[in-house]
Amino acid sequence: MSGNGNAAATAEENSPKMRVIRVGTRKSQLARIQTDSVVATLKASYPGLQFEIIAMSTTGDKILDTALSKIGEKSLFTKELEHALEKNEVDLVVHSLKDLPTVLPPGFTIGAICKRENPHDAVVFHPKFVGKTLETLPEKSVVGTSSLRRAAQLQRKFPHLEFRSIRGNLNTRLRKLDEQQEFSAIILATAGLQRMGWHNRVGQILHPEECMYAVGQGALGVEVRAKDQDILDLVGVLHDPETLLRCIAERAFLRHLEGGCSVPVAVHTAMKDGQLYLTGGVWSLDGSDSIQETMQATIHVPAQHEDGPEDDPQLVGITARNIPRGPQLAAQNLGISLANLLLSKGAKNILDVARQLNDAH
């Protein structure tokens, strides 16, 4: 009898209710805020589980004197976190989706994509230029951005401005803007500013005609071990179906173009009346040469937790077992079709030249 009692006690200790789920994140304040929001949602869904947040620095956090596009290494903000995932030191990792490459290392998958916040870019102005827009900034004003995508589009749109690289986390960039006289304004992701509670610093939100956004911008991705079915089931509740389908289309477009950090590629997606609209573009580094096109596809946005595919093969690095396969494939095909259209119009040449120029500098 006593033996059975011990077995029952052991089973209770090993039951999922007692389990601590370890969540990996970057150390920056924004990353911690984003991770806290994901953990809060998981806690609400699984009140019996405990969650421990483990923060670590990544290569991208450490190399702050070089433009991201020049470092010449993929997975700048993800490699150390993936290493911890691989060694079973954490069970899942919360990322900004735009930091996750469209091809993940073997053994990993994006197990959830959370509801997207505003994906557009924002302009934050130096205190002396508050009330201005990019259009009304004085001639030769210097605007800071760490992104080739932003610089290429904005140089084309605002030729009277000069664009220079600015690195560091959000706090560091804002301090550089406010305390030094080098920059009249800087460009940042609206979602990051909003998550930090800095709505009052948003001086201008850039519309798609001015600057399309990065693939996955404004959404959070939760990376897990691809074979860890328990954790895949656990994080599945975080999937937002519309965000998922938009981001599958965007990531398929980028992957098929073979774009990345070192080339200016941008997108804009919208879901309306059962249609998914995808606009994508590529630019030369100075913005003088560009190709942009829009395509659409009829896609039914499923309700969360309709029964999805059981075999769960990944699409552009994403596993969404609780979302039907048909809409996911339709979104992926839309991204591939748009990429093929741009490639047929000469996108590869623009991107190759951009890559060579970026590598040469």
Rank of each mutant, 00 (worst) to 15 (best):
I21H: 07
R22T: 11
R22C: 12
V23W: 00
S28Y: 01
Q29E: 07
L30N: 00
L30H: 00
A31L: 00
A31K: 00
A31F: 00
R32N: 13
R32Q: 14
Q34A: 08
S37Y: 05
V38E: 04
V38T: 12
V38P: 00
V39K: 07
A40K: 13
L42Q: 00
L42V: 07
L42K: 02
L42A: 06
S45E: 10
P47Q: 11
G48Q: 14
G48T: 12
G48I: 08
Q50H: 13
Q50L: 12
F51E: 03
I53R: 08
A55T: 08
S57L: 09
T58G: 01
G60E: 03
G60F: 00
D61A: 00
D65I: 08
T66S: 14
A67D: 15
A67G: 09
S69H: 12
K70F: 10
G72Q: 04
E73Y: 10
F77P: 02
F77G: 02
K79F: 05
E80I: 09
E80H: 07
H83Y: 14
A84D: 08
A84P: 07
E86Q: 12
E86F: 08
E86Y: 15
K87S: 13
E89R: 13
E89A: 11
V90D: 02
L92T: 07
L92E: 02
V93A: 12
V94Y: 03
S96L: 01
L97M: 09
L97H: 01
T102P: 10
T102Y: 14
V103M: 12
L104V: 09
L104S: 10
L104E: 05
P105E: 06
P106L: 13
P106G: 09
P106W: 11
F108G: 07
T109Q: 07
I110E: 04
I110L: 10
I113C: 12
I113H: 00
I113A: 08
C114F: 08
C114R: 09
C114D: 11
R116Y: 04
R116D: 04
R116E: 05
N118W: 10
N118F: 10
D121I: 02
A122D: 06
F125P: 12
H126Y: 08
P127H: 04
P127W: 14
K128L: 11
F129L: 12
V130G: 06
V130M: 09
G131F: 10
G131Y: 11
K132N: 15
K132P: 12
T133M: 12
T133I: 09
L134M: 10
L134Q: 01
E135R: 13
E135V: 14
L137G: 03
P138R: 10
K140T: 11
S141Q: 11
V142D: 08
G144N: 02
T145K: 02
T145F: 10
S147W: 09
L148E: 04
L148D: 07
L148Q: 11
L148S: 07
L148N: 00
R149P: 02
R149D: 04
R150S: 05
R150L: 00
R150G: 04
A151T: 08
A151G: 12
A152Y: 09
L154D: 05
R156K: 12
R156A: 13
K157S: 11
H160P: 10
H160G: 11
L161P: 02
E162W: 04
E162N: 06
E162L: 13
F163N: 14
S165I: 09
I166N: 08
R167G: 09
L170Y: 15
N171L: 13
R173G: 03
K176L: 12
D178E: 13
E179M: 10
E179G: 07
Q180R: 13
Q180T: 10
I186L: 09
I186W: 01
I186K: 04
I186Q: 12
T190I: 15
G192T: 04
G192D: 03
L193Y: 00
G197T: 04
W198A: 13
N200E: 07
N200D: 14
I205T: 10
E210A: 07
C211S: 12
Y213D: 02
Y213C: 06
V215I: 04
G216D: 00
G218L: 03
L220W: 05
G221I: 13
G221D: 02
V222S: 02
V222C: 10
V222E: 01
A226I: 07
K227H: 04
K227V: 02
Q229T: 12
L232C: 11
L234S: 03
V237D: 00
L238M: 15
H239K: 06
H239E: 05
P241K: 01
P241T: 07
E242R: 09
E242K: 11
L245T: 01
L245Q: 09
R246F: 06
R246I: 06
C247A: 15
A249K: 04
R251A: 01
F253I: 13
G259H: 00
G260S: 00
S262W: 00
P264W: 03
A266S: 07
H268E: 15
T269M: 05
M271K: 10
Q275G: 15
T279M: 05
G280V: 08
G280C: 01
G281R: 08
G281V: 09
G281M: 01
L285H: 08
G287P: 02
S290I: 15
S290H: 00
I291R: 15
Q292F: 08
E293G: 14
E293I: 09
T294Y: 00
T294A: 08
Q296P: 07
Q296V: 12
Q296M: 02
T298W: 12
I299H: 09
H300A: 02
V301N: 01
H305G: 13
E306G: 06
E306N: 15
G308A: 12
D311P: 09
D311C: 01
D312V: 10
D312R: 12
P313A: 14
Q314L: 12
L315K: 07
L315A: 06
T319A: 07
T319R: 01
A320T: 12
R321G: 12
N322C: 15
I323F: 10
R325N: 05
G326V: 10
L329T: 14
A330H: 03
Q332F: 04
L334S: 08
L334T: 00
L338W: 01
N340L: 10
L341D: 15
L341E: 11
L343V: 14
K345R: 03
G346R: 11
A347H: 05
I350W: 15
L351P: 09
V353M: 14
A354M: 12
Q356C: 02
Q356E: 13
N358T: 15
D359G: 13
